[in-house]
Amino acid sequence: MKPVDFAYARPMDVTAALSLLAEAGPSAKVIAGSQSLGPMLNLRLVQPGLVIDITHIAELRLVEERPDGISIGACITHADIEDGRVPDVAAGALRDVAHGIAYRAVRNRGTIGGSLTHADPSADWITMLAALGASVTLRGAAGLRTIPVEDYMLGALEADLRPGELLVSVTVPRLGRAARWGYYKLCRKTGEFAHAIGACVVDPERGVCRAVIGATEARPIVVADARHLIGDGTQEQFDGPAVDELARASGMEDAIVRQTHVVALRRAVAGAAHR
């Protein structure tokens, strides 16, 4: 179980990485911590001609805290966030979610940018960051563009990454003082991929009430104004049948799968209520 032969490049800045990408075309694969691509390379599911290692690019390992939020470099690891080396502007949500990703040894190398770009629907970040209203910034030959996290994911394993583009940072808005959040995932065992995820953020100061159903077959189901589903975030106002109908309308046909997703969101909301 060894990868195919590939060339390796270690650019030291984003510009160099972009020119490598442009030259090599689609046979180039970008790796950050290699915790997703590594297994696929070993299994020869991915057979690139060139691997571009972006973890040595200093600017991708930076964070910038601002009054309204934080910008997190693409190569910041889950452990950086879990350990608090990255300030948590989301009232503990970032640290909590980071702590629950896979295993510590994976978190020490796996990155937030890699996770989002891999676009795995069962991954944690896509769901929680969508609930938080985070966005990603991409850089390509044409310059920068910034889009909401949920739009970055086109479908299972497909990110909206145009040829020659690189995800450079993730921006997470700062939650208000009264904000509450909830996150609940169903796994059969610790560190395993989630079968259902629920996430919600209620931030009265900013007028935010978002709910996300994650670990679906495809993109997470994001409800930007979820007051009709979860009220102000207390469990009593959770409208299970409406969530079930939403999931069904989103293409979740299997009743048992739907049930577990409704439960995950219900429990996320309950968690938020008690936070």
């Binding site: 299994l43 059969r188 065992k189 610790t190 560190g191």
Partner: peptide, 14 residues
């Protein structure tokens, strides 16, 4: 199943 992500072995929490 061709990986331990498909074939689940019990770990310390299980």
């Amino acid at each position: 199943a061709s990986t331990f992500a498909d074939y689940l072995l019990p770990g310390p929490t299980e």
